[in-house]
C-alpha cells in the first residue's frame, strides 16, 4: 500500500514540475514554429517573471492578483521588445546567427538581473495561500493545486485560441508558410510579435508558479527549467503545441520518478537519455510530423 502511495505522490510531484515545463515548452515551440529559431533567452523570461513578481509584491506591496497581472504584462512586453530589437533584423540571416543572438540576449537578461538584484539568493514567500487537500493517504499542497488548475486553464485557452480565432489561424498560417501568409494579407510582423508576447506571458506564469514552489530568487534561476523545457519541446516534436504539453508532462514525471527510485544524481542523465532514445526512434519527436526532403 505504502509503495503505491509513494508512487502516486511522486507522480503528482512529477505532474507539478511537468506542468511548469509544459508552460515554458509551449513558448519555445510556438516561437520555433513561427520564427524557426531556438529562443535561448526564453528561460530567462521566467527569471524576469519571478523577479517582477518579487518587486510588485514584496517591494511595491501590491495585492497578489494585481501583481500577477502586471508580471504577465511585463514579460509579454519584454518578449515583444526583445523580438523587435534583437531577432527581427536577423529574420533572413542564417539560423546560427539568430541562435547566438538569442544566447547574447540570455546573457544580457541574466547579467542585468545580477547587477540590479545581486547574486545572493533572495528568499521569497509564496503568494499562494491555499491550504492543501488530502485524498486518501496522499497530501496535495495548495501550490500544486494552483499549478494544475492554472496549467489546465492555460492549455485549454491556448488550444481554443490557436484553433478557433482569426489571430490563431493567422499564427498557424505564418508558421506553415510565411510568404504565402503575407500574400493572403496576414500581417506577419504583428503575428510574430503576438507569438512572442503569448510565449513570454506563459513563461511569466511558469515563473510565478516556479517561484511559489522553490521560494528563492537568483539571476540564473531560469536556466535549468529553460533547458529542461526545451528538451520537453523537442521530445514532443518542436513546433507542435500539443507535443510540447505532452513532452513537458512526460519529462516532469520521468524526472520525478527517477529521482525518487533510481538515483538523484543520475536523474538528469535519464531525462536526456529518454530524449535521445525517443529521437532515434522518431527523429522529429513524439508528435512531430516527418518531413521528407526533396532535391
Amino acid at each position: 500500500m505504502s509503495l503505491i502511495t509513494g508512487i502516486l505522490e511522486q507522480l503528482i510531484n512529477g505532474l507539478r514540475t511537468g506542468s511548469i515545463y509544459a508552460l515554458i515548452a509551449i513558448g519555445y515551440t510556438m516561437v520555433y514554429g513561427i520564427a524557426k529559431m531556438i529562443n535561448f533567452a526564453h528561460g530567462d523570461i521566467i527569471m524576469v517573471g519571478a523577479y517582477s513578481l518579487y518587486v510588485f509584491t514584496a517591494i511595491l506591496e501590491l495585492p497578489a492578483a494585481a501583481a500577477v497581472i502586471l508580471t504577465v504584462a511585463v514579460c509579454a512586453a519584454l518578449g515583444i521588445v526583445v523580438e523587435r530589437i534583437a531577432y527581427k533584423p536577423l529574420r533572413n540571416a542564417p539560423s546560427l546567427a539568430v541562435l547566438i543572438t538569442a544566447i547574447g540576449v540570455s546573457y544580457f537578461l541574466q547579467n542585468t538581473a545580477l547587477l540590479i538584484f545581486k547574486a545572493t539568493p533572495i528568499p521569497f514567500g509564496s503568494i499562494i495561500n491555499i491550504s492543501g487537500i488530502r485524498l486518501g493517504n496522499i497530501n496535495i499542497s495548495g501550490v500544486t493545486l494552483v499549478t494544475f488548475v492554472a496549467t489546465a486553464v492555460m492549455m485549454v485557452g491556448l488550444t481554443l485560441f490557436v484553433n478557433k480565432t482569426r489571430a490563431g489561424s493567422a499564427m498557424r498560417a505564418v508558421s506553415e508558410d510565411r510568404g504565402a501568409a503575407s500574400l493572403m494579407g496576414i500581417n506577419v510582423n504583428k503575428t510574430i510579435s503576438m507569438t512572442f508576447a503569448i510565449g513570454s506571458a506563459l513563461a511569466a506564469v511558469a515563473g510565478i508558479l516556479y517561484i511559489c514552489q522553490y521560494q528563492s530568487l537568483q539571476p540564473t534561476l531560469g536556466a535549468l527549467p529553460g533547458i529542461k523545457a526545451f528538451v520537453a519541446a523537442v521530445l514532443g516534436g518542436i513546433g507542435n503545441i500539443p507535443g510540447a504539453m505532452l513532452g513537458g508532462l512526460l519529462l516532469g514525471i520521468i524526472e520525478s520518478l527517477s529521482r525518487a527510485y533510481i538515483s538523484t544524481q543520475l536523474a538528469d542523465a535519464i531525462v536526456y537519455g529518454v530524449l535521445v532514445i525517443v529521437l532515434l526512434v522518431r527523429p522529429s519527436g513524439l508528435l512531430g510530423k516527418q518531413k521528407t526532403e526533396k532535391v
Partner: peptide, 22 residues
C-alpha cells in the same frame, strides 16, 4: 546520432554532453 539533422542534432548532442557530465 548523426542521422538527425539541424536543431534535433543540436539538442541531442546537448543531451549527450549533459549525460556525460551527470
Amino acid at each position: 546520432v548523426l542521422r538527425l539533422k539541424g536543431d534535433y542534432l543540436a539538442i541531442v548532442t546537448l543531451g549527450f554532453g549533459e549525460i556525460i557530465r551527470s
